[in-house]
Amino acid sequence: MAQKRPRTIQIFLPTGDPAGIRIAEQTTSIIRLIEVPRSEMAEFGKMPEAKQVGLYFLIQGDGKDELYVGQSGDVGNRLMQHHKDEKKDWERALVLVSLTNNLTQTHVLYLESLSIEKAKSCQRYELINGNGGQKPHTPIPLKADCDEIHETGSLLLATLGYPIFEPLTEPSKDKAEQTFVCSRAGVDAKGIYTSEGMVVLKGTSAPMTTKRKTQQQFFKRRDELLAKGVIAEQGGRFVFTRDYLFQTPSGASSFLLLASSNGWVDWKSPQGVTLHDHQGRNLESVTEEAL
């Protein structure tokens, strides 16, 4: 995870299309990250970076929750092989290269192995690699360079909307102070509200069925997370096997209740203060300090 400090990130649109190829750089670094839609593979093949040694990430599925990590001495050619394989279901490639073209096969082999390890640890994406990569013998100076490259790459990925290596919650903060609970209709849930949404914590549980009027979409979503192993059925309830991010508090509480819900009201602090009122108090304290 990149250290949280002020940074300047430059994003360049070579075709002028914000949905097309995007190139991200930190102004003080020689690392460049190129986002390539699958539809723009031919355009990427014309770029000089396509001939470089590079690390790449393939994002698969509509929900952007499946990930493949790879590396190559000729990254453009390798991506074309993936593109021609009709069994490969991916929509966007993210390619990490050096502005000075000084990455070696040892660099990217180490970075591939490290990226797979970190992605598994963060559990944001379902990793579909068949193995853990080949971590080569890496001298200490080269390892230090790779760790710095990985940190910069993590920042650039998150800036473009792919926080592959970002923990769901801040490990430095006290979880007890951030935790909210949802306890309606037999739900026994704990969650942490972050800048990305509501993280439902491992061990949270809720009934598999509900007597309330509901829509099929809620059961469909429940079954999807069951199939992925995010939740497991235990004694007529589903239980979260790991922390899981919902984009909104209402999305999280609706999933748990299997029905429409206002998460700003249904999530409460252990003292019974709603998330809405809790956030309001924080805003009031900031306003008072500014006066």
Score class of each variant (00 low, 15 high):
Leu157Trp: 08
Ile23Ser: 05
Val200Ala: 05
Leu160Gln: 14
Asn282His: 09
Asp74Met: 05
His107Trp: 11
Ala185Met: 06
Ile31His: 13
Ile149Met: 12
Thr28Gly: 01
Lys143Gln: 15
Asp174Phe: 02
Gly280Phe: 11
Thr100Glu: 14
Asp174Cys: 04
Ala2Ser: 12
His83Glu: 08
Val181His: 11
Asp266Phe: 08
Glu91Val: 09
Phe12Cys: 13
Phe246Ser: 01
Cys146Ala: 12
Ile116Arg: 08
Arg22Cys: 12
His150Asp: 11
Ser39Ala: 11
Gly76Cys: 07
Gly63Arg: 14
Gln10Phe: 02
Pro136Ser: 00
Ala227Gln: 11
Thr287Ser: 05
Arg237Cys: 02
Gly251Met: 01
Asp266Thr: 15
Cys182Leu: 01
Leu258Asp: 01
Gly20Cys: 09
Gln105Phe: 00
Gln10Lys: 14
Pro141Cys: 07
Cys146Ile: 11
Val75His: 12
Gly203Trp: 02
Thr159Asn: 13
Pro136Val: 01
Met41Glu: 11
Gln123Trp: 02
Lys143Ser: 11
Thr100Asp: 12
Arg7Gln: 15
Ser261Asp: 12
Ala93Leu: 08
Val53Phe: 08
His150Leu: 13
Lys173Glu: 11
Glu151Met: 02
Glu148Val: 03
Glu177Trp: 06
Leu156Met: 12
Ile21Asn: 09
Met41Ser: 06
Phe57Ala: 01
Leu142Asp: 08
Leu58Gly: 08
Glu49Ile: 01
Val239Phe: 01
Thr159Glu: 15
Gln216Asn: 10
Val187Gln: 04
Gly191Thr: 10
Thr241Ser: 04
Phe246Glu: 04
Ile11Gln: 15
Lys228Asp: 05
Glu224Phe: 03
Ala19Ser: 15
Ile11Asn: 15
Asp147Ala: 08
Leu291Phe: 02
Ala185Val: 07
Leu99Phe: 04
Met80Ala: 10
Glu117Trp: 05
Arg222Gln: 14
Gln123Arg: 09
Lys46Ile: 08
